[in-house]
């Protein structure tokens, strides 16, 4: 019944998922855990405020991946959660938000998110459908369009959270050149260094997945973040145990994980 070699992974998945559900329920009852400040997420409001004062638009993108990929899809979901927050703030401050899109399947979702944000803030007439821009399905066509848009519109803030590849440095360097305050985030480890050097704030790996919960300030959502720490504690314990057991000349931990 169970696939060989995937039992330990399933147990780990169930522990983390059960922990998430447990802490969501605790959060709903008012037991809100204290979580550290994430400067990159706190800086989003500052970036939008700055762009508003400068009279420049805010750029917000959610990466170049679609929603269906198991590895990169969650990053797009995280990026769309950030877009939801950014769009609400921009609608509140009457600031233009420009959303460059690469994936056609994500385009209607991004448009709906921004349009509804304006409606919820009571300013549906300020929504500009032409600011949700489908640029190109080609990676560098998208990158070129994004860069030229930032140059033309003189971006005041550039918020990029999602899965990015080689275009990450092109976009962030262009944002720096036009003087935009930039917040970036990705779980693609090979692109994190580019974002770190070229943008003002960078969300690293797991921080982007926590963004939706962190920004919503919903107690249940915030509670779920604790499950990530539980998963990490188990991981650290297994690593330490594996080293000790390995040094004693046996490979029980490896066999356990290969179950």
């Amino acid at each position: 019944m169970l696939q060989s070699g995937r039992v330990s992974g399933l147990i780990y998945l169930l522990i983390v998922a059960a922990s998430a559900l447990y802490f969501i329920k605790r959060g709903e009852k008012g037991n809100i855990p204290e979580i550290r400040r994430v400067s990159g997420l706190d800086a989003i409001e500052e970036a939008i405020g700055r762009a508003t004062e400068m009279g420049r638009p805010v750029f917000c993108s959610h990466g170049i991946s679609g929603l269906s990929d198991a590895t990169y899809g969650p990053q797009t979901i995280a990026g769309l959660s950030v877009l939801n927050y950014v769009a609400r703030l921009c609608a509140r401050y009457a600031t233009r938000v420009i959303v460059p899109v690469r994936q056609v399947s994500v385009y209607p979702i991004a448009r709906e998110i921004v349009e509804t944000a304006y409606k919820l803030e009571g300013k549906p007439e300020q929504f500009r459908p032409e600011d949700i821009v489908y640029l190109s399905g080609f990676q560098f066509g998208y990158s070129l369009g994004y860069m030229s848009l930032m140059e033309r519109e003189r971006a005041g803030a550039n918020i990029m959270v999602g899965a990015y590849w080689a275009e990450s440095l092109q976009l962030s360097e262009t944002g720096a050149r036009v003087g935009a305050l930039q917040v970036s985030g990705t779980a693609n480890t090979h692109q994190i260094p580019f974002f770190v050097v070229a943008t003002d704030y960078t969300l690293i790996g797991e921080e982007i997945y926590a963004a939706g919960a962190y920004l919503s300030k919903d107690p249940a959502m915030v509670g779920s973040i604790v499950a990530q720490d539980i998963g990490k504690f188990i991981g650290i314990a297994l690593i330490v145990l594996g080293v000790i057991v390995g040094l004693s000349g046996t490979n029980y931990i490896v066999k356990l994980l290969e179950m």
Binding site: L13, P74, L80, E112, T116, A187, I208, G212
Partner: peptide, 23 residues
């Protein structure tokens, strides 16, 4: 990142993560 994705998946499947939905 993998842990973050798992927890995000749990939130999305149980309907708590709604930021990616309309409004």
């Amino acid at each position: 990142g993998a842990l973050g994705a798992i927890v995000l998946g749990v939130r999305a499947m149980t309907g708590y993560e709604r930021g990616y939905l309309r409004g």
